[in-house]
Amino acid sequence: VQWIPLGKRLTLSVSILQSGDLLSPPGASVALECQMGPGFSMSSFTMLWYRQNRPGAPIQLLLTEYEQTKDHFRASIDGPKNNFTLQIHDL
């Protein structure tokens, strides 16, 4: 995120905490979580979930915080807890 006030350039670093890797059998469901670091609020940003099938592959937009469901994906946001969750059903 960059803020550019009155001709001066100021860079602002935002910490994003993500859940680790998950391994699940076919047909199962998993939940991935993303959380803003201390001092920042998700209400100040638009949250997006992306997917990259393998290193070097194109990045694909899955869902935004404004979309509830799409195919096997369901996104939910908990503003007070600064938590953005992606549930994947029927892997």
Rank of each mutant, 00 (worst) to 15 (best):
W3N: 14
I4W: 01
P5G: 14
P5C: 14
G7R: 14
R9L: 15
R9P: 00
R9D: 13
L10I: 13
L12C: 06
L12G: 00
V14G: 00
I16C: 13
I16Y: 01
I16F: 09
L17I: 12
Q18W: 02
S19I: 09
G20K: 05
D21R: 07
L22P: 00
L23Q: 09
L23K: 07
P25I: 05
G27S: 06
S29E: 10
V30M: 09
V30D: 10
L32C: 13
E33D: 12
P38A: 15
P38F: 04
F40K: 02
F40T: 00
F40I: 01
M42N: 02
S43F: 04
S44I: 04
F45A: 09
F45T: 03
T46A: 11
M47A: 14
M47Q: 06
Y50Q: 07
R51Y: 04
Q52M: 10
N53F: 03
N53P: 01
N53D: 15
R54T: 03
P55V: 05
G56Q: 13
I59W: 02
I59T: 12
Y66M: 14
E67P: 00
Q68I: 11
T69Q: 13
H72A: 13
A75D: 03
A75Q: 02
S76F: 02
S76A: 08
S76I: 02
S76E: 04
I77Q: 06
D78Q: 10
D78G: 07
D78V: 04
G79T: 06
G79E: 15
P80Y: 02
K81D: 14
K81M: 12
N82W: 03
T85L: 15
T85K: 15
L86R: 06
L86S: 12
L86F: 09
Q87T: 13
H89N: 14
H89G: 11
D90C: 05
D90N: 13
L91Y: 01
